[in-house]
């Protein structure tokens, strides 16, 4: 990962079409970034510190995994042992017997995918209107949009619950998807991205007589893949891990429970069955962990695009 990746101040500038061949040799040269120079001893020490830190860091997860494989009464034995008298893979299957985890997982997927699709649609259309179209009141509306970013979810959940009561949406999928699908964050992210796309591309389409809708669909959207992907990943993770809101709006766990609240209530119900709780925890960690491992090359850039964007 080189510094060039972040050269453009415009967040997530359109995908770069490879580095020109003439520039490549300079990437091979040792560059003077912090921690890049130094003695061989320093490098060895850095490796040791990194490995030790990583080992300590993952210890709780490793311990949880091996606890999930133990017989129930052997989880809390002193001195702690990694492996019990038997290795019970059965625990992972038992989790699905004790609580409707299949439903929880399905619900989490439905809600996360639906929410992500709504967010992408709303953010892309509104972002385009703010970035490229001219209409009266645009700048004022944009400032109002940004103003809503200041209001934290915690202020909104109480009245949102009353709104759900009015709509008759308590215990529905809609109540899990829609209330948080209209954040100004996505719109802002997309607007910043659209502004980085050269006007000339649109001019050409307009000269050919294409209106905003066709320009948007044919010219702009195909260039937007990377920004949409970043927004999609962050939105999916937010929905997937959401805890406070489902806790409030879902009463009927057996049909509408999502993974986080299902797992929390499972933990309360099973008391000291740490073996099952750890198995359930590990299961619920798998999807997002796979997502992050798959996206590892883009992590830093994704954070730079979304988090620091528009600073």
């Amino acid at each position: 990962m080189s510094t060039e990746t972040f050269g453009a101040p415009v967040p997530g500038a359109p995908p770069r079409a490879g580095v020109p061949a003439a520039d490549r040799p300079t990437r091979r040269r040792r560059r003077a970034s912090f921690g890049g120079e130094g003695s061989r001893l320093g490098t060895v020490v850095a490796y040791i510190v990194a490995v030790v830190a990583a080992l300590v860091f993952v210890t709780p997860l490793v311990y949880a995994f091996f606890s999930a494989l133990k017989p129930s009464r052997e989880v809390l034995l002193a001195p702690p042992r990694l492996i019990g008298t038997e290795v019970r893979w059965q625990n992972f299957a038992d989790v699905f017997e004790y609580a409707p985890f299949r439903t929880y997982i399905t619900n989490s997927f439905i809600v996360s995918v639906a929410g992500t699709l709504v967010v992408l649609f709303v953010s892309a259309t509104a972002g385009y209107a703010f970035a490229r179209l001219r209409w009266p009141g645009r700048d004022i509306v944009f400032v109002l949009f940004l103003g809503t970013l200041m209001v934290p979810q915690e202020v909104l959940v109480i009245p949102m619950f009353v709104v759900m009561q009015w709509f008759g949406w308590v215990d529905t999928y809609q109540s899990l998807v829609f209330p948080w699908a209209f954040t100004a964050f996505g719109t802002f992210l997309m607007r910043q991205f659209f502004r980085g796309i050269p006007y000339e591309l649109e001019e050409a389409a307009r000269v050919d007589g294409a209106g905003p809708v066709r320009t948007f669909l044919r010219i702009i959207l195909p260039l937007t893949g990377s920004a949409l992907a970043v927004l999609a990943v962050f939105t999916f993770l937010n929905y997937w891990n959401s805890y406070l809101w489902p806790l409030i709006t879902v009463n009927d766990y057996s049909t509408l429970g999502t993974l986080p609240i299902g797992l929390a209530s499972f933990a309360t119900q099973t008391g000291t069955r740490w073996d099952l709780q750890m198995a359930a925890s590990i299961i619920s960690m798998i999807p997002t962990t796979i997502l992050v491992i798959a996206l590892q090359k883009h992590l830093v850039k994704g954070i730079a695009t979304s988090g620091l964007g528009g600073r």
Partner: peptide, 17 residues
């Protein structure tokens, strides 16, 4: 990736661990 994993795993699971 290792240090980032708990950021994306459900906070409920992290807390139980």
């Amino acid at each position: 990736v290792i240090f980032f994993i708990p950021v994306v795993t459900p906070i409920v699971a992290n807390a139980l661990v």
